[in-house]
Design a protein around this nucleic acid. Structure first.
Lengths: 138, 138
DNA sequence: GTAACTGCAAAATATTTGCATCCTT
DNA sequence: AAGGATGCAAATATTTTGCAGTTAC
């Protein structure tokens, strides 16, 4: 699997076992992941602190982005190629299924522009929709 | 101040010192508040546990709603009158100012409808915009 | 008077920091 | 070899739970 290698290389990050493994978890997953998910998904497990630091680094370098939630948790998902250090292009909709609880990125649905009142200048927009996902509407 | 009284009464909740005080904090504030904000804003301070439980009750009864954030925190803000038990009508935009860090509800800006891919059924939509607010664009 | 609410203590969870060691380049 | 990354230990911070005493109705 060379994709992890390419991504880390591109960012100028050193290629380490934990970074490759954690990145691999994201590449394998179609849904957004929490810190706990990631801790659980690697074998052997990495130190909790390493997971924290790795996720933080990935966010900084635009490899993953954070998804806002209303419970006290943060979810992470892979960014698309256009993301870079300090510049996240994650203006897509996040969908949280109320049945299967999975959160996924709807990459291809654009966020509509809204007319803000005079004086407000938007910089980044996030949209989170709760509902029933593709796999649960049978 | 009788407004707190009316709100609690309407929900069938008992009128207690802490509930009135915490509700008052929300009524006085134009921005969204965190658990820590509330703990700080009442004098004398209530037990941390009481604040947790009060916020939870208020959310359940539709008095306040939660605002999703990308850091590990949850913000709360007052709901409008249409909210009730199990039914939040908080489909308005939340604005986080990147300068003054304050989060506020843009009550009068409606969230545009989006066309989801076939199979996805929306139930609730949240929209959070980061940018520069009214007071910081001088 | 009874049911519900609060505060305290403590447990369980989650996050951060410092430092010595190990790995990548 | 040098700088950065990891793992361990421990400090902090956050959230939850149980229970006894208190308050609202």
């Amino acid at each position: 699997m060379q994709k992890e290698y390419a991504i880390l290389k591109k960012c100028g990050l050193s290629i380490t076992t934990s970074r490759k493994a954690i990145l691999d978890v994201f590449l394998q997953s179609s849904e957004a992941l929490s810190h706990a998910d990631i801790e659980r998904s690697t074998a052997p497990a990495f130190d909790r602190v390493t997971v924290y630091r790795t996720l933080q680094t990935f966010v900084e370098y635009g490899i993953i982005h954070q998804i806002p939630t209303t419970d006290n948790s943060v979810l992470y998902a892979l960014c698309k190629d256009e993301c870079a250090v300090g510049h996240h292009q994650d203006e897509h909709i996040h969908f949280i299924c109320i049945l299967c609880k999975k959160t996924s990125c709807l990459e291809h649905v654009e966020i509509p522009k809204v007319n803000l009142p005079k004086g407000f200048e938007p910089v980044q927009t996030a949209m989170v929709i709760k509902g029933i996902c593709l796999h649960c509407t049978d």
